[in-house]
């Protein structure tokens, strides 16, 4: 029983990062109707930013979030201006299709560049407090993972407030719902697209920092993180940020449960099976409306 609880707790802690990764992907998809399959590679870049800040200057990984986020925001702006922004005039279906293809090419480029620049080795950030744990009865919780979950939750709460309470956030939601009507409100739709894409990238950057501190990074982690994010988005729909976060935690728990009950390999399979099942049961309404 205690081993179960321990496993589920670990799953939930990892799941918070899935939620964070998924919200970035969902934000871009909901607003621009583009599926950036290089989202996982952006997470990888965020992870390396944190890794190098720590290795070169001993920057605390939770402080380096403040660098990785804005840095990936800038990367997002550049990617939008150089690549994805060229698709905005297309019809929805071809826009999604082409964005997948561009994301795919981008993923290859980022993956290969990361290997060339930093080798294919696995890296992690081991802060001074890395070994510390919190105990609750028999339950052991590593402090870095708890911190990652807390930061993920805080970032998403901040994003929620931004989208709900500010003019810029409302403009993003309005654009997601009906870009043409939004432009009739005086909202510069293309600038909103760019902001949303950059915000999605920044969220990937923050997620990457947290992955580097609580887990490990390598140039190859991109695809699996993109898949995790996709699974969570499919589970949660595009309805709400909180829903996505909860779905992420649930996926983490389900993975742990599957690994514990059936064997380690099922950790990776369970999410994919859930994903395929939901896809086939709801072929049209995959991503719910609104934001």
């Amino acid at each position: 029983m205690e081993v179960w609880l321990q496993n589920m707790t670990f799953g939930a802690l990892v799941g918070g990062l899935y939620g964070l990764a998924a919200v970035g992907l969902a934000l871009v998809f909901g607003v621009l109707r583009m599926l950036n399959v290089a989202h996982g590679e952006l997470i990888m870049l965020g992870g390396y930013a944190t890794f190098w800040l720590f290795t070169l200057w001993r920057t605390d990984p939770y402080v380096s979030l403040l660098v990785a986020g804005p840095a990936l925001f800038a990367v997002g702006v550049a990617l939008y201006e150089g690549l994805f922004g060229r698709l905005v005039h297309l019809h929805e279906e071809s826009k999604i299709q082409l964005s997948i293809l561009i994301g795919f090419g981008l993923a290859l480029v980022l993956h290969a560049s990361a290997i060339l620049a930093w080798t294919a080795d696995e890296r992690g950030v081991t802060a001074a407090y890395a070994g510390r744990v919190l105990r609750a009865g028999a339950l052991v919780v590593p402090i870095t993972r708890l911190g990652a979950l807390g930061v993920a939750f805080a970032v998403l709460a901040g994003l929620h407030l931004y989208l709900q309470r500010t003019d810029a956030g409302r403009a993003i939601r309005a654009t997601a719902e009906d870009w043409e009507a939004a432009s009739l409100m005086g909202i510069p739709v293309r600038r909103v697209y760019r902001t949303a894409f950059a915000l999605g990238s920044a969220l990937a950057g923050v997620a990457g920092s947290l992955v580097a501190v609580s887990d490990a990074i390598s140039p190859a982690i991109g695809l699996s993180w993109t898949l995790k994010a996709l699974i969570v988005v499919v589970l949660a729909g595009l309805g709400s940020i909180l829903g996505t976060f909860v779905a992420g935690v649930l996926l983490g728990v389900a993975e742990s449960a599957a690994a514990f009950a059936l064997g380690g390999v099922f950790r990776e399979v369970v999410g994919l099976v859930l994903f395929v099942t939901i896809l086939t049961l709801r072929p049209q309404g995959l991503f719910g409306r609104g934001l």
Partner: peptide, 28 residues
């Protein structure tokens, strides 16, 4: 200002939010 055919309200947002968006323009 154009009131488009079919109204094109932001259906998932509140009446107040729709109105606030209507006044988004820097001029207004």
């Amino acid at each position: 200002a154009l009131v488009p055919e079919g109204r094109r309200l932001f259906a998932h947002m509140t009446v107040l939010e729709n109105l606030l968006l209507g006044g988004y323009a820097t001029r207004a």
